[in-house]
Design a protein around this nucleic acid. Structure first.
Length: 418
DNA sequence: TCTGGGGTCCTAGGACCC
DNA sequence: TCTGGGGTCCTAGGACCC
C-alpha cells in the first residue's frame, strides 16, 4: 500500500501559522510579480476564485469580501516544507518527497497495523509539530493514493484520512471521480477522452488497453493499470540530480534596453550557478531565452532562444554569466518591448566527473572564489554581494508588495519595526 | 496598468551507422 | 523488372506534474 500526504492549501496554511488573524479570513497567495493566484484558502475557493487567475481580475471580489492577498514567500514555504517532510520521515520507513507540499510513503511494512489509525495519528502529529493541516490518502498504488486524497479534499471527512481498500469500494469511488481529476490525465487528454464518452475514472479503466496506449502512450496505460490496482510507478526515495536548472522571471515593466536585459540575464545565470553548486553539479550547455508580452497582441512580438556550448562543463557563475551575455547579444533585437527572460542550464553532470578542456582551464581557478561568494551570501544575504554587471536596484525585478516575513529563517527580520 | 516559475517523460521523424 | 534489414542518437513538440 502507498500513502500520500498532501498539505492543505499549503502556501496559505504556511501564512496562517504565523499570522493567526488570517485563520478565519479568506486568503490568497499570489505568484511572483503579484501576478496570479497560486494558493487559495477554502473560503476563497468557495467564492469561485480560480487557480491561476490574474490578480487584477479579482480586485473587486477581494475588496467586497475582505480577502487577504499576499505575495509568495518561498523562503518560508521551503522551510515549512522541510519541517513537514521531516515529521513524516520520522514515522514512515520509506518516503518520496514528491513536491513542496506532497510526499508519498510506502506502507508494506505496516501489514499488522491499523492503517487508518496510523494516518490519523500522523496527520495529528504534523498539525501539532508544524501547524500545517494535511490530507492523507492510502491505496494500492500511488495513483489510487492520489484518488484517496482527492476524496478527503472533496468530501467532508472529519479525520482527514481515507483508505481505498476493497475492489468494490474502489470501483464505487472511481465512478465518482472525473477523468480530468486523475493524476496523469491533464486537460488535453481529458478533452480527447470526453469525446470518446469517457467521463469518469471508472469509464477510463473500461477502455481497451490498446486504445489507451495508442492515444496516450505508455504513460496513459500505466495510469490505467495503477487505477486497476497494479502498481507501475515506484516510490522514488532518492531524488535524481536535476537534468535542467532554470531561472526565469517576468519583468515588472517591459524593457527594450539591452543593458537592462543584460542585468537580468546575468542575475539569472548567477542564480542558476548557485543552484548548480548546491547540487554539486556542472553544466555543459546554457540556453538564453527572451520574449515580448504575448498578452499584448497589438505590440510587435518576438521570442527567441539560443543554446551555447560551454567550453568546459562548469559551475562557475563568472563563466555562466559570460556565456549568457554572449547568447543574449546574439538574439537581442531592437524595436521590441521584452517582458520575460530566462536562463536554462542542461547537460548537467556530477562535478567529480568533469572532463577537462585541454585549451581552457580557467574554471578551476574560480572554485575558491565561488566557495567564498556562496559563503558570504549564505551569511549576509544573496543581495549583499553581486557581480558588477548585476544592478543592485534590479529595476526589471517584479514587485512583491504584500510579502510576509521570513519567520523561520531570518530572525533579524522579525525584530524590524513595521 | 496589471496575466508565475520550475520541472519530467515519451514519441516520431530525421540523420546516421553497418 | 528488380531496390534489405537492423540498429542508434538527437531533437522538437506535446503531454503531464506541482
Amino acid at each position: 500500500m502507498y500513502g500520500l500526504i498532501d498539505c492543505n492549501n499549503f502556501y496559505v496554511s504556511c501564512e496562517r501559522v504565523f499570522n493567526p488573524k488570517l485563520k478565519n479570513q479568506a486568503v490568497v497567495v499570489l505568484s511572483n510579480n503579484d501576478g496570479c493566484v497560486i494558493s487559495r484558502s477554502t473560503e476563497t475557493k468557495a467564492l469561485g476564485i480560480k487557480m491561476g487567475e490574474p490578480a487584477f481580475k479579482i480586485e473587486q471580489i477581494v475588496k467586497s469580501h475582505n480577502i487577504a492577498m499576499l505575495s509568495s514567500n518561498y523562503e518560508l514555504y521551503g522551510d515549512m516544507s522541510s519541517r513537514v517532510m521531516n515529521t513524516i520521515a520520522a514515522e514512515a520507513p520509506a518516503i518520496e518527497i514528491y513536491s513542496i507540499d506532497e510526499a508519498f510513503i510506502e506502507l508494506s511494512n505496516f501489514k499488522y497495523t491499523n492503517l487508518l489509525e496510523f494516518a490519523v495519528n500522523l496527520r495529528a502529529k504534523i498539525l501539532k509539530w508544524t501547524g500545517i493541516p494535511v490530507s492523507v490518502g492510502i491505496g494500492k498504488t500511488k495513483t489510487l493514493a492520489k484518488i484517496a486524497t482527492n476524496v478527503v479534499k472533496k468530501t467532508p471527512i472529519e479525520c482527514g484520512a481515507f483508505i481505498l481498500e476493497t475492489e468494490e469500494q474502489t470501483i464505487e469511488i472511481l465512478k465518482k471521480i472525473k477523468v480530468e481529476d486523475v493524476w496523469g490525465i491533464g486537460r488535453r487528454y481529458s478533452k480527447k477522452l470526453r469525446s470518446e464518452f469517457v467521463f469518469t475514472a471508472y469509464d477510463f479503466i473500461t477502455m481497451p488497453d490498446h486504445f489507451v496506449k495508442k492515444t496516450m502512450s505508455i504513460v496513459g496505460l500505466k495510469t490505467k493499470k495503477e487505477l486497476e490496482g497494479q502498481s507501475c510507478i515506484n516510490l522514488q526515495e532518492v531524488q535524481d540530480s536535476k537534468k535542467t536548472i532554470t531561472t526565469s522571471r517576468s519583468f515588472a515593466k517591459k524593457q527594450s534596453d539591452i543593458k537592462i536585459l543584460e542585468q537580468a540575464v546575468a542575475y539569472f545565470a548567477d542564480n542558476c550557478g548557485i543552484k548548480l553548486r548546491k547540487d554539486n553539479s556542472v553544466a555543459k550547455y546554457l540556453t538564453v531565452y527572451v520574449r515580448t508580452d504575448h498578452f499584448k497582441s497589438n505590440l510587435p512580438q518576438y521570442s527567441q532562444a539560443i543554446t551555447v556550448n560551454l567550453p568546459t562543463a562548469t559551475d562557475s557563475s563568472l563563466t555562466l554569466i559570460k556565456y549568457a551575455l554572449k547568447g543574449l547579444r546574439l538574439i537581442y533585437k531592437t524595436g521590441f518591448l521584452f517582458k520575460k527572460a530566462a536562463v536554462t542550464l542542461s547537460g548537467i553532470e556530477p562535478k567529480v566527473a568533469v572532463q577537462g578542456n585541454i585549451f581552457d582551464n580557467s574554471d578551476f581557478q574560480h572554485a575558491d572564489l565561488m566557495k567564498t561568494i556562496d559563503a558570504i551570501r549564505e551569511k549576509f544575504g544573496k543581495e549583499k554581494l553581486q557581480f558588477g554587471i548585476q544592478n543592485t536596484e534590479g529595476f526589471w525585478k517584479a514587485g512583491r508588495q504584500r510579502v510576509s516575513k521570513a519567520f523561520t529563517t531570518k530572525w533579524d527580520e522579525l525584530l524590524e519595526v513595521d
